[in-house]
Simulated assay, not measured.
Amino acid sequence: MSIIRLFVTSVFAAGLLAAPANATTFIFKSGGAFIDMPTGNVAMDCGTVGADLCTDDDTLGFDYSKDGVSFNASAYQYTDDTYASRDKTLLIQDISPENSGLGAFSENDLKNDQTQFNSLESIEFVFNETVSLTNFEFNAGDDLDCSSGAHTEGPCGDFELWINGALFATITAVDLLTDVFTGMTFEFRAITPDAGFAIAQFEVVNEVPIPGAIPLFLAGMAWLRFSSRRRKKNAS
Rank of each mutant, 00 (worst) to 15 (best):
F186V: 11
L6H: 01
A150Q: 04
K232L: 15
F197Q: 03
P211Q: 12
M184K: 15
D175W: 10
D52G: 04
R5P: 02
T185C: 07
G47Y: 03
G154I: 03
E129K: 10
F217K: 09
T185G: 06
G183P: 08
Y64H: 09
C156Q: 04
G149F: 08
V11Y: 06
E203F: 05
F181S: 06
T130R: 14
F188M: 08
G149C: 00
D63L: 05
F127E: 00
A150Y: 06
F105G: 00
C46L: 10
A198C: 08
F7P: 02
T79Y: 04
A235H: 13
A235Q: 13
D67G: 10
T9V: 10
T115L: 07
A19E: 11
K66R: 09
S147G: 12
D58H: 08
G47L: 07
F138R: 01
G196D: 05
K233M: 14
P209K: 12
R225N: 15
I171K: 08
S96M: 06
E129T: 07
T178I: 14
N128M: 01
F125K: 02
Y78K: 00
A190V: 08
V49R: 12
T170P: 02
N41L: 13
N108V: 12
K111A: 14
R231A: 15
V49K: 09
D143H: 06
E187V: 09
G32M: 08
E98Y: 06
D194S: 15
A235E: 14
G68W: 05
T25K: 10
I92L: 13
S122P: 08
R229Y: 14
G149M: 01
F159H: 04
D80R: 02
C46V: 15
N22S: 07
F127P: 04
T55Q: 04
F226D: 14
F7Q: 03
N135L: 07
A169T: 12
D109I: 02
L177N: 11
A43Y: 11
I214D: 15
N72L: 10
T25M: 09
D113N: 14
L110V: 15
A23W: 00
D63W: 01
D36T: 10
Q93F: 01
P20T: 12
P20G: 11
I123Y: 03
H151I: 04
E137G: 00
P215A: 15
A198K: 09
T39L: 11
N135Q: 09
L60W: 02
Q116L: 07
T59W: 03
D52Y: 02
F217W: 14
K111P: 07
V174Q: 11
R231N: 13
L161S: 05
V205K: 05
T48C: 03
L60K: 11
T48F: 04
L90R: 14
T152F: 01
D67I: 07
T130G: 12
V204I: 09
T185H: 10
A14Y: 09
I191Y: 01
N206M: 07
E121G: 05
Y76D: 03
V174I: 15
